[in-house]
Structures are given as C-alpha cells and as structure tokens.
C-alpha cells in the first residue's frame, strides 16, 4: 500500500516537475544546520549531487552551526522565498518552541523531502554488569543513583528516549551525564565514563559489531536487519509500542511562500536523487530507514512527530513551555 502511495506521489511530482520553467537560473544555497562531518552533513552532501543532476543546477552547501541549528533555520527563514535558499536540517527545529530555543519551526517551511529516519538503540559499556534491557532496569532498581546514563542536552535523542523510559518504567534513578553530541558520548562510553547511552543506530553500529559496546535493546517495533540478534524494546515492555516507531530524521525544506512550481522542481529533484543506488546503499549502511517523502505525506509525518515528541517531553517535565501554547495538539490516543 505504502509503496503505491509513494509511487503515485512520485509520478505526480515528476509530472509537475517540468512546470518550473527557468528554475534554477542561478546557484542555490543549501544551508546545512549542523557542522561538517556530522550525520546531517554527510546525508546532505551525499544526496545533493544526485539531486543537482536532475535539477540541472548547482547547490552550494554551507554549514551554519550554532543555537542547536536555530541560526541556520532563522537564516533561511529571513531569506527570500524564491527557492534559492534551501534548509537542510534534522528533527530538532520541531522542538524549538517547547524547548524555548526559538519562535520558528518547520511550520514556517515547506518540506521538499524527508529523506530518512534513524532508529534509536540503547548501548552499554562492555564491562557493564548486565547484558540486556531487563538486566539494566533490575540493576537500576538495586543500585539507585549509580548508573551513569549519557545525555546530549534537552531535546536531543537521549532526552527523548530517557523521557520514554521514565514514562513507561516510572521515574528511573540514574545520573545523566551531558555530552555535546552522541559521538563524544559514545567515545566516553567505550572509555567507561558512562555506563549506558541511548544513541542513533548508525553511530553505534560499528562499535557494536567490533564488540566495543553492548547493545541492550533496539527502540523499534521490529528487529533491525543490521542487528537481527538485538531484541526490540517492545519485547521487554509492551508499553513502548505507543511511542514507536520514533527516530530522528533528515529533511530538505524551503521557506513557506516559495512558488509552487519551484517547490515541485526541488521535490522532483530530491525525490529522484534519493533513489540513486549510491545514496540508498549509504543510508542502508549507516542503519537509516529511507523515507523519501514529500508533500502532504511529509507534512503529516512532521505533525505527528512533533505532537508525539513534544507531549512526551511535556509529560516528562522537560519542556520550557507547554506544546498547547503553540497549538500543538496532544496526539490522539
């Protein structure tokens, strides 16, 4: 079913793609929300050349870091809505409002393409005195306030996973040690500075394969094809099913108000670019789930993601302001 919808959307965008005549007449600025070498950067730099080929134009990519990506978002929001400034970002802006990090989010933008989604995984130091998720929970209950859990600041993937765990298991008494990204946190995990880290699968997969860290549970409904032997979180506790599937994502956006034909051209270009075998292989290798959606489908994905995550964080008491204040409705039960 999904495949048919995807196909239909693709056909539609391909048909309308030809409409934007004379676009692009000059090079397009692609503003990457995160620094060089990060996963957003890698994804964007590897899909864009394929999209460029379809578009017949040049996209000059720039990294603009700072303010958890808000600097880049505001830069694109302040530019002309002509399709010559494109935002290449991740999931974070959907939480800016509730986290008090900014007044704008993706509702001020039109999704060109939601490229891929990541899966979260809980990993532990190899010497940790437990081997799976159930063992970890038992350890926490026996040794309250001793387990060191990695974190990356409010709104990051670990904070969402931790909020899920607190919601499902009840408040866990652990020490949350903050890092400035999952890379440094996973390094610290291998050195024993922290015991457990919720991370995106792609960042941990090589370390797991080499036996440098222990996988505890995959935060998904089904086992991951790259790590089929790792149990899913729902196999330990059904309660997680309400929140899954969940994961960070990468997407390309233009400012609200960009002419329809320009949006259609970009959507068609990125849609086809993301189907290139090299990109598909890259996403697969890093453990990302290819999505490649746009239009209404992307919009409803964003809305659902924002509702779920914002309210999860709100209920865990991690937000600066209630999602209600911004008209983010509580997800339907």
């Amino acid at each position: 079913m999904k495949r048919i919808v995807l196909g239909a959307v693709a056909a539609l965008t391909m048909a309308t793609g030809a409409m934007a005549e004379g676009y692009p007449t000059k090079e397009i600025q692609g503003i990457i929300q995160w620094g060089a070498g990060g996963s957003t950067d890698t994804v964007m730099r590897s899909v864009t050349p394929h999209a460029e080929a379809v578009l017949g134009g040049t996209v000059v990519m720039q990294n603009m870091t700072g303010g958890v990506g808000a600097i880049a978002l505001n830069y694109v929001a302040d530019a002309e809505a002509d399709g010559y400034t494109v935002l290449m970002g991740a999931e974070n802006p959907l939480l800016y409002k509730v986290m008090g990090l900014g007044e704008k989010d993706y509702s001020d933008f039109i999704p060109v393409s939601i490229l891929a989604r990541g899966t979260a995984i809980l990993v532990a130091n190899v010497d940790a005195p437990f081997d799976d998720y159930a063992g970890m929970i038992a350890y926490i209950n026996e040794n309250p306030g001793e387990l060191k859990l990695g974190a990356t600041g409010p709104g990051g993937l670990p904070s969402v996973i931790t909020a899920m765990m607190n919601t499902v298991e009840g408040e866990l008494d652990v020490i949350a040690v903050p890092f400035d990204g999952d890379g440094p946190a996973l390094t610290a995990l291998q050195g024993g500075a922290i015991d457990v880290m919720p991370a995106v699968l792609g960042a941990a997969i090589e370390g797991i394969k080499a036996g440098n860290m222990k996988p505890l549970a995959v935060f998904d409904l089904e086992a991951n094809q790259h790590l089929p032997e790792v149990p899913t979180i729902v196999s330990f506790n059904e309660g997680y099913a309400d929140f899954l599937p969940w994961g960070p994502f990468f997407g390309v956006f233009v400012k609200q108000g960009t002419p329809d034909d320009v949006v259609a051209s970009l959507q068609a270009a990125y849609h086809e670019g993301a189907q290139h075998e090299d990109f598909v292989a890259l996403m697969d290798g890093r453990g990302f789930t290819l999505m490649n959606i746009s239009g209404d489908e992307a919009q409803s994905f964003l809305t659902a993601w924002q509702q779920n995550t914002a309210w999860l964080l709100q209920d865990a008491g991690l937000t600066q302001a209630s999602p209600e204040d911004f008209g983010i409705a509580r997800p339907a039960e």
Binding site: A36, G37, G38, D41, T42, R45, S46, G183, I205, E206, G207, K209, A210, N212, D278, A281, L282, G285, R286
Partner: peptide, 19 residues
C-alpha cells in the same frame, strides 16, 4: 579527521573499530 570520517562514509566505507 571528523570531516574525513564523513568522507569515508560517503565513499562507502564504514570507519570504526572494524575498519
């Protein structure tokens, strides 16, 4: 080296302990 790791990824290698 952080950027080079990204480059290796793009070229289909998986930098990590297994490399």
């Amino acid at each position: 080296t952080a950027i080079m790791i990204g480059a290796l990824f793009i070229h289909g290698l998986n930098p990590g302990p297994m490399l």
